[in-house]
Design a protein around this nucleic acid. Sequence first.
DNA 1: CTGCTAAACTAACGATCGTTAGTTAGGCGC
DNA 2: GCGCCTAACTAACGATCGTTAGTTTAGCAG
Lengths: 197, 197
Amino acid sequence: MVETTRRQEIEDVASDLFREHGYAGTSIRDIARALSVQGASLYAHVTSKEDVLWSIVDRAATRFEEAADRAEAEAEAHAPGDPAEALAALVKAHVDVLTSDVDEAGVFVSEWRALGDERRAQVLARRDAYQARFRGHVEEGIALGVFAMTDPSIATMTILGALNSIVTWYDPDGRLSADRIADHLVDLTLRMLEGSR
Amino acid sequence: MVETTRRQEIEDVASDLFREHGYAGTSIRDIARALSVQGASLYAHVTSKEDVLWSIVDRAATRFEEAADRAEAEAEAHAPGDPAEALAALVKAHVDVLTSDVDEAGVFVSEWRALGDERRAQVLARRDAYQARFRGHVEEGIALGVFAMTDPSIATMTILGALNSIVTWYDPDGRLSADRIADHLVDLTLRMLEGSR
DNA sequence: CTGCTAAACTAACGATCGTTAGTTAGGCGC
DNA sequence: GCGCCTAACTAACGATCGTTAGTTTAGCAG
C-alpha cells in the first residue's frame, strides 16, 4: 500500500494533464474530473491553480539540482578533475530524473513560462545555474584538450536540448529502458564533444 | 514597401503570441489587441481560432518538407550515396528554416498538439515521414561503416531534439548568426555519429 | 453519544472565452 | 452618384474560467 496524500494525488493528475494539454489548456475542473470530484472541492487542498503548477515545477527543479549535486560529487570522488567523467555523470543523472517521472519533468521543461513573474524569474535563475554546471565541464574539457574546439554555449544548449527532448518520445512501457537510453545519451554526448573530425 | 495581406499580419502576430503564451494561453482578443482592433473584427479574415493555428503549422511543415527536398536533391547531386553529406544537408536545411522564422517554427514544434483530431493526426504523419528521412541516412551510414554503431532511433530523436531546441534560445539579434549556428550543429551532429571512441 | 476532522458537496460571483449578427465608414470603378 | 469591397465597429450569445462561501457527509477518538 503506497501512502499518498490527496494533495500529492492532485499534483500527479495535474502533471499528467498539464503535460498533455498545457497549463493554460487545463482547467481546475479538468483536474477535478480526473479525480471524480467537483472542481470547487480541490480548493480544500490547494490555494490556487498556479500553486499546483508551482509545486510541480519546484519539486522537479529540486530533483534535477540534487541529482546533479550527487553526480558531480561522485564523479569528482573517483575521477577527480576529469571533465568527461563529470559531464557523463551529469548527463546520466539528468536522464535518470527525466525518465523517473516524465510528466513532472515534461511540465518543468515546458510549462514554467506560465508562472507569475517572480516565480518565473526564480526558475529562470535556477535554470541558468544548472546549465552553467554543464557548460563549466564543457569549457574545462576544451581547455584541457580532451574535447574538440567548439562554441561551449552552443554545445551546452545542444546537449541539454537533446536530453530534454526525451520527454517528447520516451515511453516507460516502450522498447527502450530508461537505463539504455541514459547510456546511449552519455555516449552520444561524449562522442559529440570528443570526436576528432 | 512590403506587400502583406491582413490575413498574413494576423498569422504573424498570432505566431508571436502562440509562441510566447501557447495556443490555449492566447485569446482571439489578445491577437486583436496586438493589431489595435476589436476581437470580433478578426472573423472577417479568419474562420476560427484553430484555423489560424492550422495555417501557421501547415505552412511551417511545408517549409521544412520543401527545404529537405532541396537539401537531399543537392546532396545526392554532388556526393551521391554519401550518408554523411546527405545528413549534413538535412541538418543545415532544418536549422535554416528554423532560424528564418523562429516564431512560426516554434509554434510548429510545440503547439500542433492543440489542433483537432484529424489535423493533429495529419501533422503527426508528416512528422513521422520527416523524421524517417533523417533516420534513413543514419541507418545507411551505420550500415556503410561511416557512422559508429548506435541505436538509429535514439540517434535520430536526439539530433532532431537538439535542432528543435534552438527555437528556445536563438535570438536573431544575438551574438550568434543563424549561419554560424547551422554550421556548428552540422559539425556537432556528424561528430556525434562518426566519432570513434 | 459527542465532537472533531477530512473531504466532499451545491450554488454562485464576475470575468473572460470563441463566435455570430448586424451595422458603419472609407475608397475605388463604372 | 451608385454600388461594391474591405475593414472595421458594437452588442450580445452561451459556455467556461478561477475562485469563494456555506453546507453536508462519513469516519474515528473520547
